[in-house]
C-alpha cells in the first residue's frame, strides 16, 4: 500500500532519474545530479529558514508562492553552476566525465559540510511547511514531472533533441555534420542541473531538514540505477525506473529483514533480463501501434 508520502518520494525519484537521463540522451554519462540536487535543496533550506521576506510563519507555515519562487531560484542557481562547471568537464568523455562529475558531487558535499552558514553535519532543520501533509507536495511534484516530461518529449522533434541523439550516436560524425557539439552537450547538462536543482528545493521542504548527506556519491549511483533499470533510450524509462526503485524497498517491507537483499536482486536481475531497460523504443512502438480493434485497422484510421 502506497501512501502519499511515499508517492511524493517516488515522484522525486522520477525527477532525479530524468535529470540523469538528459545528459545521457546526448551521450554524456554525468553523475553530477546529486550535486545540483544538493545545491537546490540547500538554497531552499537557507532561504526558507533565514530570510523572513519569504513569509515563513512562526508556527512553521510557508506560503506556496514562495515555494514556487524557491523552485525557480534553486533551478537557476544549479543551472548557473552547471554552466560554469560544464564548460570544463564536458571536454571529458565517458568514464572520465563520470569521474569528474563524481568529484563535483564530493566538492559540493564537502563545501556544504564546511560552509559557516549551512549548519555543518547536522544541517538545517525546522524547514517551514507550505502544506499541512504530504499530499500537498503531490501537485508541485507532479507538475514539475509533467513539465520535464513534456520538454523531453518535445526535444525528440526539436533540432536540439535531434542533435543530442546524433551526438549520442557518434560525436565525431555529429561534429562533421556541423553540429556545435559543445553547445548541445552543455545545454543538456544545464537542463539536467535545473531539473535537479528544482527537485532539491522541493525535497528540502518535503524532508523537513537538509544536510550534506542528501547529495552524496551513493545518490549518484542510486539515480544512475533508475536510468539503467528503466531504460535510457526514452524519457519514460528513467521516470519508470525512479518510481519503481524508490517504491520497491518500502513495498518489500512485509518480507522483513531480507527486503534489501531482494531489492539488490531486482537491481541485479533487471539489466540481465532487460538489457535495454524496462521501457524501450520498441516497446513504445508496439504500444503506439496497438489497437484493440486490430492493428491493421488502426493503421488505416491513422491515414490523413
Amino acid at each position: 500500500m502506497i501512501d502519499n508520502g511515499l508517492l511524493v518520494q517516488m515522484l522525486l525519484g522520477a525527477l532525479l532519474g530524468l535529470s540523469v537521463y538528459l545528459p545521457l540522451a546526448a551521450g554524456q554519462l554525468s553523475l553530477a545530479t546529486p550535486a545540483f540536487y544538493a545545491v537546490g535543496g540547500t538554497l531552499a533550506a537557507l532561504l526558507s529558514t533565514r530570510w523572513s521576506g519569504l513569509g515563513a510563519t512562526a508556527d512553521g507555515g510557508f506560503p506556496v508562492p514562495s515555494l514556487l519562487l524557491e523552485l525557480v531560484l534553486g533551478g537557476l542557481l544549479a543551472g548557473l553552476l552547471a554552466l560554469l562547471v560544464g564548460r570544463l568537464v564536458l571536454r571529458l568523455q565517458g568514464i572520465y566525465l563520470a569521474i569528474a562529475t563524481i568529484a563535483l558531487v564530493e566538492i559540493v558535499r564537502v563545501a556544504i559540510l564546511n560552509l559557516p552558514f549551512t549548519g555543518g553535519a547536522v544541517g538545517i532543520f525546522a524547514i517551514p511547511q507550505p502544506f499541512h501533509d504530504a499530499s500537498g507536495y503531490l501537485l508541485p511534484a507532479l507538475a514539475l514531472l509533467a513539465l520535464a516530461g513534456w520538454i523531453c518529449q518535445r526535444l525528440e522533434g526539436m533540432p536540439l533533441g535531434r542533435a543530442m541523439a546524433a551526438i549520442r550516436g557518434d560525436e565525431l560524425a555529429a561534429r562533421c555534420l556541423g553540429i556545435d557539439t559543445t553547445r548541445v552537450k552543455l545545454t543538456a547538462f544545464v537542463l539536467s542541473a535545473v531539473l535537479a536543482g528544482s527537485t532539491g528545493a522541493l525535497a528540502a521542504h518535503f524532508l523537513n531538514t537538509w544536510n550534506a548527506r542528501q547529495g552524496s556519491f551513493d545518490a549518484s549511483i542510486t539515480t544512475l540505477a533508475f536510468v539503467v533499470l528503466g531504460g535510457s533510450r526514452t524519457w519514460l524509462g528513467p521516470v519508470m525506473g525512479g518510481l519503481l526503485l524508490t517504491a520497491l524497498p518500502e513495498l518489500l517491507r512485509p518480507v522483513g529483514n531480507v527486503r534489501l537483499v531482494l531489492f539488490g536482486l531486482v537491481i541485479l536481475l533487471g539489466p540481465v533480463l532487460a538489457p535495454q531497460g524496462l521501457i524501450t523504443p520498441a516497446l513504445l512502438e508496439r504500444l503506439g501501434g496497438w489497437n484493440p480493434r486490430g492493428s491493421a485497422e488502426g493503421r488505416q484510421e491513422a491515414q490523413p
Binding site: 518529449q153 525528440e156 522533434g157 519514460l236 523504443p281 516497446l283 513504445l284 512502438e285 508496439r286 503506439g288
Partner: peptide, 10 residues
C-alpha cells in the same frame, strides 16, 4: 508510433 506510444504510456 513511438510518440503515440510514449503519450499513451505517460
Amino acid at each position: 508510433l513511438r510518440r503515440r506510444g510514449a503519450l499513451r504510456l505517460a
